[in-house]
Write a protein that binds this DNA or RNA. Sequence first.
DNA 1: GAAGATTGAAAAGTCAATCTTA
DNA 2: TAAGATTGACTTTTCAATCTTC
Lengths: 143, 143
Amino acid sequence: MTTTQSPVAAVLHAASWVESRFDARLATVGLSLPKLAALRVLVNAGEALPLGQVADRLACVRSNVTQLIDRLESDGLVSRESDPTDRRACLASVTEAGRHACENGMRIYKAAEDEVFGVLSPEEMEHLSRLLARLHPRDPRCG
Amino acid sequence: MTTTQSPVAAVLHAASWVESRFDARLATVGLSLPKLAALRVLVNAGEALPLGQVADRLACVRSNVTQLIDRLESDGLVSRESDPTDRRACLASVTEAGRHACENGMRIYKAAEDEVFGVLSPEEMEHLSRLLARLHPRDPRCG
DNA sequence: GAAGATTGAAAAGTCAATCTTA
DNA sequence: TAAGATTGACTTTTCAATCTTC
């Protein structure tokens, strides 16, 4: 007995399922995976970052970050500050509400991880991650 | 030695890589994965289909198909016909250009599959598909 | 009323062009 | 001229509301 679906469909369907489960849970506190990822970058940095830095760490394009930070700013989770050392740049800074949202978000994230990946043993999860990692070139940000 | 990335990131990054590779190749003939998927549905059906049918077979929402067919129609690959049996409905019909685009697209698709999944043996690919399938409920369309 | 399709608004991403500053 | 950020246009997706027809 073999798998009917193509490996492409397997990867794409799994990802869209994972994304939808995480986003559905995060939506209950007004977050999404991209918003949480951006908040994590800023909280982990421990200081306000220029948007270009955020784009690099999220591995996405600058214009995307501009709009993501726009949305986080209207949510009151991030604020833009002017960079005293470079008048072209602006710094994204997490607000107190943003820090709380990030903590809540991470709790929900871990619960979702248990829900979605709980069906696999740690060994299977490890194996899965290794197989997936071989599909694409190594991300220079992680190692 | 263990994997540094979370399984969530592993799945999401792999999918976004796969998607970008396929889309980059398909873009050379003016296609994308969603466009090719819609063309395949219509070609495989062997007849014009109401948009709701297309939405069901693509496992997406109706409004999405409306716009996807809009884009395919401006590309000249699909045309809307009126349904003689139901004046609410409209039928999506592949044009001759659409049929050719679908053939070209499928050749490119298979080449991309070789490129992206060629790094895995058939057994590894099978194993990967099985692990991924266990993450989400079985799709009723496929079985 | 329920079913087909569409429309409008939104999130998320890309690219190309622009504007300001370095 | 380069670099930082933004803007505008586009694709893909969703949801809620609407309109026509069954």
